[in-house]
Design a protein around this nucleic acid. Structure first.
Length: 238
DNA sequence: CGCCAGGCCGTGT
DNA sequence: ACACGGCATGGC
């Protein structure tokens, strides 16, 4: 039945990274100047096009609210207006305030202090925040705080499903996310541990790059550099 | 004009 | 535990 020649899903996922590097080159992500900007972007981009996030970030920059102190001093009502372009402002504005409040009350208002927390405990603390789910937590962990956690965003889920690396899971639940995280961890398990942060960083950035171009909700894989090698047929739905 | 975007949360089964 | 809508707004 199963051919011993065909690479395992783990091997294919790992090779996917190399193929994407070959196709797109190093990404050196996340598009932000500071760690706190990464945090802001992680919240604002929830189910929102990055283009819209840029408008909100520009609004925040204009009033000096791209820093912790700046955001702290912006009244909630005003913040709501500033982040309006990226949608869900009635949720995202209070959520951002809650993040700063946590920082102030538990971590001396410092991202460095926050980052010094052990990864697992830190992840749980972030997940307890309002408006922070697994993906936002991992984006903050990886791109703002430098922890070696893989990200399993919507693009990776689609790519993995379309290439039959995982079972289809229509109702994306938390279990599906965590299983994709584990799959990614295992796929890079043979790589030196000290390089994992960089690998996970690049891997997710590349997934977004290829996902934006070829793997949207309805967008097909036409022209996708992965289509052939990962054995996915273009007529496949989903 | 309709669909979609780098999710998360509350509610019902 | 899991499925299902709602949430706001702008781009294409």
């Amino acid at each position: 039945m199963k051919s011993s020649r065909r690479p395992s899903p783990l091997q294919r996922l790992r090779r996917m990274h190399d193929q994407l590097v070959a196709a797109y080159g190093p990404q050196s992500w996340w598009p932000a100047e500071t760690s706190f900007e990464v945090v802001l972007g992680a919240y604002l981009t929830q189910n929102t096009a990055w283009k819209a996030v840029e408008k909100s970030l520009a609004n925040l920059r204009a009033v000096g609210a791209l820093t912790i102190a700046g955001l702290r001093s912006v009244p909630l009502e005003e913040l709501r207006v500033l982040v309006r372009p990226s949608g869900f402002s009635t949720r995202k504005a209070p959520a951002l305030k809650a993040f700063v409040a946590m920082l102030d009350e538990e971590f001396s208002g410092s991202l460095d202090v926050l980052a010094a927390t052990p990864t697992l405990a830190l992840r749980h603390r972030l997940l307890a925040l309002p408006g922070v789910g697994p993906e936002t937590a991992d984006a903050i962990l990886l791109y703002a705080l430098g922890h070696a956690v893989p990200m399993a965003d919507e693009y990776l889920r689609r790519i993995a499903e379309r290439h039959q690396l995982v079972e289809p899971a229509p109702g994306r639940n938390r279990r599906g996310y965590e299983s994709l995280v584990r799959l990614t961890q295992q796929a890079f398990a043979a790589d030196p541990v000290e390089g994992h942060t960089q690998l996970f960083n690049e891997f997710h950035a590349l997934n977004v790059a290829v996902g934006k171009a070829h793997c949207g909700r309805t967008a097909r894989c036409i022209g996708c550099p992965l289509a052939d090698d990962l054995q996915w047929t273009k007529s496949d739905p989903i």
